[in-house]
Amino acid sequence: MRNLRKAAFAGATAVAVAFGSTSVALAEDAAASSNDITVSSSSTETEKDAANGTQKPTEGEGSLSSRIGNSIESDQTAYGPAIFGSSKGEAAGESETFEQQPVWAKILYGLSIFASVAAAFGLIVAPLYNFVVHGL
């Protein structure tokens, strides 16, 4: 009975992996072929004036993700060598420094440092601790 459960679980996992990306691919094709997609890139909405047919901007609060995006400067691009380079943009001939980079790039840089430290901990320190506590 135990092997039958393992086989059923393995089969279900294989089917899920095989067909899980199919719906994503179909959804992407359908979205790409649709011509009536409208995208709003700012938190200001427009309101049509009934009197003369012109549109005037209305101030909206925007969603939480819009406010977070505005606070971390999501519309700005980052300069890679200033973030990940050894000189952090301070070398001669570099156009931007680390301090001039947008907030989102600095957050991702900090997260990459954290992930590197966590990976080193998981690769070296945790097995050593397990060996000391539990032995071979």
Rank of each mutant, 00 (worst) to 15 (best):
G11F: 06
A119C: 11
A10E: 12
N70Q: 15
L123M: 11
T13G: 10
V39W: 06
G80M: 07
T13C: 14
E47N: 10
F9A: 02
A31T: 08
K48F: 00
I68T: 11
V39Q: 05
G110E: 15
G93M: 03
S66Y: 08
N35S: 13
P81M: 06
K88I: 12
G135Y: 06
E96F: 07
V132C: 09
F121G: 04
V15A: 01
E45A: 10
S116F: 07
T58D: 06
A18K: 07
A120Q: 10
N52V: 06
E94Q: 14
T44F: 09
P102R: 05
S87L: 13
R67G: 00
N52E: 01
A8T: 09
D36Q: 07
P81S: 01
V24Q: 07
S34F: 11
G89E: 03
I107L: 15
A18Q: 07
A78F: 04
G69N: 07
N35K: 13
V132H: 00
T46R: 14
Q100S: 15
N70S: 15
S71Y: 14
F121L: 13
P81W: 05
A115S: 14
L123T: 08
F131C: 08
A126L: 15
S66A: 14
D36I: 01
S63G: 14
N130R: 14
S34A: 05
A14F: 15
S74K: 02
N70C: 15
K6L: 14
I37G: 01
S21G: 05
F84Y: 13
A27Y: 03
G69V: 03
A51F: 13
E59K: 12
N52M: 02
G110F: 13
E28A: 00
Q100F: 09
V132R: 05
I107H: 02
T46M: 08
A119R: 04
K106T: 04
A14P: 04
E28K: 04
E94L: 07
S33R: 03
Y129I: 15
A32L: 02
V15P: 03
V133A: 10
V133I: 14
A10F: 15
A82E: 01
E45M: 03
K6E: 09
S23W: 09
T77C: 02
Y79H: 07
G69A: 12
S74Q: 10
A7F: 10
A31W: 12
F98G: 00
A120I: 14
D36P: 04
A51N: 08
F19R: 11
A105P: 02
D29H: 11
G85F: 00
S33K: 00
E94P: 00
